[in-house]
């Protein structure tokens, strides 16, 4: 499997959504292609980091009461 096809399939590979042949093809390619393996690692890191964003930590919230006042009188 070449880099182009492997890169195309990385998300499906991560989601375990490939048939056996393609899955093995990607795995073998990642084992012998450090750049593509690096991309896969980075994508995994982003996916893990993204799921933590569901929490509201780090967001600066506007004035909840002021918005409620506007809703009440709309």
């Amino acid at each position: 499997m070449e880099c182009e096809e492997s890169l195309q399939l990385l998300s499906d590979y991560h989601a375990n959504a490939l048939d056996e042949q393609k899955r093995d093809g990607v795995r073998e390619h990642l084992n012998c292609c450090p750049p593509c393996d690096g991309v896969y690692h980075d994508v995994e890191t982003i996916i893990v980091s993204a799921s933590s964003l569901r929490e509201e930590e780090g967001i600066s919230f506007p004035d909840e009461t002021a918005i409620w006042q506007r809703i009440q009188f709309s």
Binding site: C3, E4, L7, Q8, L10, P34, P35, C36, G38, V39, H41, D42, T45, I46, S49, A50, S52, L53, E57, G58
Partner: peptide
Amino acid sequence: ETPIQIVRGTENQAKMPVVDRIALE
């Protein structure tokens, strides 16, 4: 865009460190 066009720096084999929240946002 194709994935290989989006991916730049594939020559750089250094893996991305942990992504902090601010950088990701």
